[in-house]
């Protein structure tokens, strides 16, 4: 199948290879949580809620008493895909993504400032259309910022693939299921450090660099957008205060 039309240069959904889907971010969507956010990348829609820092519920889990414990739970809603999923949680994929998100967020949270406490991040996929991993990380970042948890930098994530000999930014579900390489990158934008890099396929080194470069560009664009959302939110809060 042609994922990039050779005559018009457009992808199946009308984007150019280096274009992202439409982004949408909103904070404060779950009233009970300490911080929450909704994040959309095209048709992928994710909600994140953050609880904490709070007292550790199960001391057995505590590894280092000088640092906060970060926990993360990823799950997909039964209705998030076309077919109804039977096991929304606890399968290998969910466990893996939970771990990935936790590790990525841990890298940016200043955990040493909050000893003997724990932070819970819940992410739920409402609608899946490729790139859920990235969308979850972006949503978690927004939610953590909303909760006021101290962070080194904003972590953002974006995926990029390589189909029809072209690096493609932000794969949607059709492109994702094409079986080509899918590079998911998470970076600390200001510090320019990579906190997440995943790929489960083979790519020659030079092409891989191009694809990763594209994904990093995507991350930076998302960071700019997230900052805007946060700034607007802060302004709104300022207004409310008077």
């Amino acid at each position: 199948m042609e994922y990039v039309n050779p005559l018009t240069g457009f992808r199946v959904d009308g984007r150019r290879p280096n274009e992202m889907r439409q982004l949408k971010g909103e904070v404060g969507v779950v009233a009970r949580a300490d911080g929450s956010a909704l994040f959309e990348m095209g048709n992928t829609r994710v909600i994140a809620a953050v609880y904490g820092p709070r007292e550790i519920q199960n001391r057995g889990q505590q590894v280092n008493s000088n640092e906060a414990l970060v926990r993360c739970e990823y799950r997909m809603a039964e209705f998030s895909t076309g077919d109804r999923r039977r096991k929304p949680k606890g399968d290998r994929r969910s466990t893996e993504i939970s771990l990935v998100i936790r590790q990525t967020m841990e890298a940016s949270i200043l955990t040493h400032l909050m000893p003997r406490s724990q932070i819970d991040i819940f992410v739920q996929v409402l609608q899946a259309d490729g790139g859920t991993r990235s969308a979850c990380i972006n949503a978690a970042t927004l939610a953590l910022a909303d909760a006021g948890i101290p962070m080194r930098d904003i972590v953002t994530s974006c995926s990029a693939g390589y189909l029809c000999s072209t690096p493609l930014l932000d794969l949607n579900y059709i492109e994702d299921s094409a079986g080509g390489p899918d590079v998911t990158v998470g970076i600390l934008t200001k510090m320019d450090k990579v906190t997440l890099l995943q790929m489960d396929a083979k790519l020659p080194m030079d092409t891989f660099e191009n694809v990763m470069e594209l994904a990093i560009e995507g991350c930076k664009a998302i960071a700019t957008y997230i900052r805007e959302v946060l700034l607007e939110n802060t302004k709104r809060l300022e207004c409310q205060r008077g």
């Binding site: 959904d13 009308g14 984007r15 889907r21 095209g42 048709n43 259309d129 059709i174």
Partner: peptide, 11 residues
């Protein structure tokens, strides 16, 4: 029968 929703960007 499955309902597929796809984005279509107009430019």
């Amino acid at each position: 029968i499955q309902k597929v929703v796809r984005e279509h960007y107009l430019r």
